[in-house]
Design a binder for these strands. Structure first.
Lengths: 123, 123
DNA sequence: TCGAACCCTCACACACGTGTGAAGGTCGAC
DNA sequence: GTCGACCTTCACACGTGTGTGAGGGTTCGA
């Protein structure tokens, strides 16, 4: 598919998709006319990228962790020790983020529940 | 405590703390000499801010959700409907982030486990 | 009393993700 | 053939969080 359709289907813009490609997060074939040609898998991939970006991960990190998320056993190939170290570090950082977000989200939920309670039974 | 100590205890820098104060995320008293004076609770608060910033929330949003996280029932006071709407929206966004991070973090864990397995029993 | 270490404000600068517009090529429908 | 919708590259600009340094005041111990 072309860039416009991919943008529409992922809720992004062509500008962003070109940026992600420039950063090495997605790849595309090129038609004879120079138009980018994305395959179907890009839709999910872009959604994943969006989620990770929105969760605070920079493109540089996303680029490093994406390869090990795409498929299964095929990609166990031969990661360098540095790659493994990076993955372990990012795994820990993501866990910390999850913990922080969960704690604060639950606090918001508690607050909202308390508000609703006091609304129903004021004083 | 003064800004330097707070920075040391929270792993930040005075520069950042001044920025957070400017954004309304923390407050401080001022000594006769103009020096900022932070109370003990700021340590936890700054750590919380750091975690949320690192998780992709902008200061504007953090400022809005922080008041309902600080203590308990006292703060049920009288949130405006807009405030509640904001909290509900951010609650949903945080849940989405958590889900995305968890999914990808677990995928990394699976990958690392697979790598370790194939290392132990190659071929 | 001097110097080091701390504080202040102000301002310029950077990285990163994103918006926007210019200048131009391609394609499909009328 | 022409028009609108799409694509290309390039470039400038913005917001946000952060770094850094200038210029200057305070505090405290040697």
């Amino acid at each position: 598919m072309r860039i416009g359709e991919l943008a529409r289907r992922t809720g992004t813009t062509p500008r962003l998709l070109r940026y992600y490609e420039e950063q090495g997060l997605i790849t595309s074939a090129r038609g004879a006319n120079g138009y980018r040609d994305f395959d179907e898998a890009c839709v999910d991939r872009v959604r994943q990228i969006r989620g990770l970006l929105d969760s605070g991960l920079p493109t540089r990190v996303i680029k490093q962790i994406l390869p090990c998320l795409t498929t299964g056993a095929v990609h166990v190939s031969d990661p360098t020790p540095e790659t493994i170290a990076i993955l372990e570090r990012e795994h820990a950082r993501m866990s910390a983020r999850i913990e922080c977000l969960t704690r604060n989200r639950d606090a918001i939920a508690d607050y909202l529940a308390a508000v609703r309670l006091s609304r129903r039974a004021p004083r």
